[in-house]
């Protein structure tokens, strides 16, 4: 099975206190956030999270009345040095993989982690596999 990461996405009204509420729900459930980003659009936004226990996070957020979904995204580990982003980006171009959105953070051991949401996950994964790219799963980020 090919490795992917389950991302949690939440609808949130663009109002003070919404993020605090989300964080409070996750904190009380002892869920640790590994990566986090907000896409804003006027009166609302989408909060995207990578957490250590995505299924549990999804269930508790749903129970608390949030509009929440789980999406498979691609996690790629790259070297934390100039030029490594270029290598990955060129690889995506070569494989004709369109990126819906992406974000990155600094991992451990001089490595960076790139999270990519692609429209055609299956073909992206098989292409990256043939190129020998090492894909991450959530256990690699704990």
């Amino acid at each position: 099975m090919t490795k992917t990461i389950k991302q949690i996405s939440l609808f949130s009204e663009n109002k003070p206190g919404r993020l605090a509420k989300i964080a409070d729900v996750l904190g009380k459930e002892n869920i640790n956030i590994r990566a986090f980003t907000i896409a804003e659009s006027g009166d609302f936004g989408i909060v995207r999270l990578v957490v250590d226990h995505p299924d549990q996070a999804h269930d508790v957020l749903k129970r608390e009345g949030f509009t929440v979904s789980e999406t498979d995204v691609v996690g790629i580990e790259i070297n934390d040095e100039p030029g490594s982003m270029k290598d990955v980006a060129e690889l995506f171009a070569e494989g004709n993989i369109n990126i819906d959105y992406a974000y990155a953070f600094i991992g451990r051991n001089q490595k960076a982690v790139l999270i990519v949401r692609v429209s055609d996950l299956e073909s992206a994964l098989s292409f990256l596999k043939t190129k020998g790219v090492s894909l991450l799963e959530i256990n690699d980020l704990l």
Binding site: Q7, S9, F11, A39, S41, F44, I46, R48, T67, V68, S69, T71, D100, Y101, R117
Partner: peptide, 14 residues
């Protein structure tokens, strides 16, 4: 109010 709507993409909301 949103009901059965959950997506990670802004475009779906638009």
């Amino acid at each position: 109010e949103l009901a059965d709507m959950a997506s990670d993409k802004l475009d779906d909301y638009y």
